[in-house]
């Protein structure tokens, strides 16, 4: 009642504050709204512009369920105070949107909150990505390879071997993980391959593109015999192929490394 009004940015706008934040209590926020000329009510009604929630509690959840009011994060309010202007709502401000607001947002933003019309930046995109935590289905690896090819990212040093599916000769008996050779240099090569985009598989099967062999050449004959039965022929290369490709930052032609 004896409030000194500092700003008129919220003049005649009705707010209902449900809860405060760690830094500001509910009454702190209400006081700040009043200073800016806003009206504070304890229960949202027809004229309430929006509900402010610092943290989600039962009342907030009930309001969300009722689907009649927009529920906005207290951060938005703080942003308004900080900038001393009525900051337009953005998807990351919203806890819940009533149908009309949702419709309005659907024209401006996609369902992840990325604008259709305004350029994004690293910070905003990170924000958008962070809010996408619920995505379960990951893109398959070959799609990543396709994407990189389409946007010409495939010359990045992190995707040198993206198109390769490689079996590393690190079992004394081919395809038998129980016969793993320990502390082998090939293990490091396998990690390097993976780090630079390759798919490393543990079984010499149809569809692989390369077999990586180290100093021990004793299994090459068996591999070649297997290869005769495959429709897609893989290449047997020495680890130098990996080392040279990495050194030069570019996939080297396998032909000089064939075994």
């Amino acid at each position: 009642t004896n409030i000194h009004v500092e700003s008129t940015m919220f003049e005649d706008v009705e707010f209902c504050v449900m809860s405060g934040t760690n830094e500001y209590t509910k009454s702190d926020l209400e006081g700040k709204i009043a200073i800016c000329g806003g009206v504070v009510v304890q229960n949202p009604g027809e004229d309430t512009y929006c509900v402010i929630a610092g943290s989600q509690n039962v009342r907030v959840k009930n309001l969300i369920a009722a689907n009649k009011h927009d529920v906005v994060k207290a951060e938005w309010l703080l942003e308004c105070f900080e900038n001393k202007t009525f900051v337009p709502w953005q998807p990351h401000h919203m806890i819940h949107m009533c149908p009309s607001t949702r419709e309005h947002f659907a024209c401006e933003y996609d369902c992840y909150g990325d604008s259709y019309f305004t350029d994004t930046n690293e910070h905003q995109l990170k924000d958008v990505f962070n809010r996408m935590s619920s995505i379960q289905e990951k893109v398959p690896l070959d799609m990543i390879a396709d994407l990189e090819q389409r946007y010409s990212w495939d010359d990045s040093s992190y995707s040198i071997f993206r198109q390769c599916m490689i079996y590393v000769d690190s079992f004394t008996s081919i395809n038998d993980p129980n016969t793993k050779i320990h502390t082998s240099r090939l293990d490091v090569r396998a990690l390097e391959l993976r780090f630079h985009g390759a798919t490393v598989v543990s079984s010499l099967k149809e569809g692989i593109s390369h077999v990586l062999v180290g100093e021990d050449h004793s299994r090459i004959d068996e591999m070649k015999a297997l290869r005769r039965t495959f429709t897609k022929k893989f290449k047997i290369v020495s680890e130098l192929w990996v080392l040279d490709s990495l050194k030069l930052g570019k996939l080297q032609n396998e032909n000089q490394y064939l075994l």
Binding site: D110, Y112, D114, L125, V128, F129, M132, I135, E137, K138, V139, L141, M143, I144, L147
Partner: peptide
């Protein structure tokens, strides 16, 4: 993979 997934979604 996660980044690419999100990227493709957007």
């Amino acid at each position: 993979q996660e980044l690419y997934t999100r990227f493709t979604c957007v």
